[in-house]
Amino acid sequence: MFADYMLNAWVVATIVAVVAPVVGFFVVLRGSAFVAHAVPEAAFAGAAGASLLGLNTIFGLGAFALGASLGIGMLGRRGRHDVVTALALVMLLGAGSLFLGWSTEYAPEIYSLLFGEVLGVSGNEIGLTALLGALCLGAIAVLYRPLLLTSVAPELAAARGIRNHRIDMAFLVVVALATTTAVPVVGALLMFSLMVGPAATARCLTDRPLHAVVLSVVIALLTAWASIAAAYQTNWPVGFFVTAFAFAGYLLAHGGRWIRNAYSRPQAPLAGESAA
C-alpha cells in the first residue's frame, strides 16, 4: 500500500485534502456550493480543448476555470448567482462536448478528469500541485477577515467600506485556482466532495470559525487517507469512497447534533424569542 508508485497518490491526496476544505469552509459559509461544483466541472472543457490543441491540459483547465469564475462573478452581479452559474456551466460543458466530438481519442482521459484517478498520479505533477495549493492557502490567509465578514453579513462589510463584489470576485479566483490545483490530479468529483463535505461537517461540531477551518482539514485528511486505503484494498474507484465517507461524516455529525438538541431541549428555558 505504501509502494513507490502509491507514494505519489498519498502526497497529492494530502495536498488536496489540506487546500480543498480551507477554500470549502468559505464555500459552505457563503452558500455557494453550486459555484464550487460548476467551476471544476466546467474546467474539464478547457482540458479537452487543450488536449485538442496539443497543449498541456493544465493550461486549458486553468484558463477555463478562471473564465468560468470571472464570468459567473460579472454576470451574476445584478441577477441571480445560481442562474448564471447554471448557464455558464452548461455552456462550458457544451464546449467540452464539442472538443470531445472533434477528438474522440481522449475520452478515457476526460473520464479521469471528472471522476479522478488519484492512483495514477505521476511524480512531476506533484511540484506544480504543491505550488498552486500553497498559493491558494496564502490567498485565503490574506483575505481571511474581510472574506469572513462579507460571507456572514454583507451589510456590515459594506458599512466598513469593504467592496463586497471585489471580495466576491477575489474568492471566485481562489476557487478557480484550487480547481486548477486539484482537478488534474484527483478529478472534479473528488475535489468538490473534499471542499463541501468536511466543511459542512465541521460547522456542526464547533462554533468558532478558525476551529471549523482546522477541523474540516482534519476531516478531509482522514477521508482522503481512508479512501485511498480502501480503494487500494478493493480496487474500486477512489471517488466512490471519498464521496461516501464525506457524506457519512456529514450525516453522523448532523445526527449527533440532532440528538444533542433533542436531549437539551427539555432543560432549556422557554426561549420564545431566540428564533427571531
Binding site: V28, H37, L189, V196, G239, A244
Partner: peptide
C-alpha cells in the same frame, strides 16, 4: 437557501461517487 445548496452538493457528489462505482 444556503444550507439547501450545501445539501444538494453533498447528495450530488455522493451520487456521482456511486455512479463512478457503477461505471467501474
Amino acid at each position: 437557501r444556503s444550507g439547501r445548496d450545501v445539501a444538494t452538493g453533498l447528495v450530488l457528489s455522493t451520487a456521482l461517487g456511486l455512479s463512478a462505482l457503477f461505471l467501474y
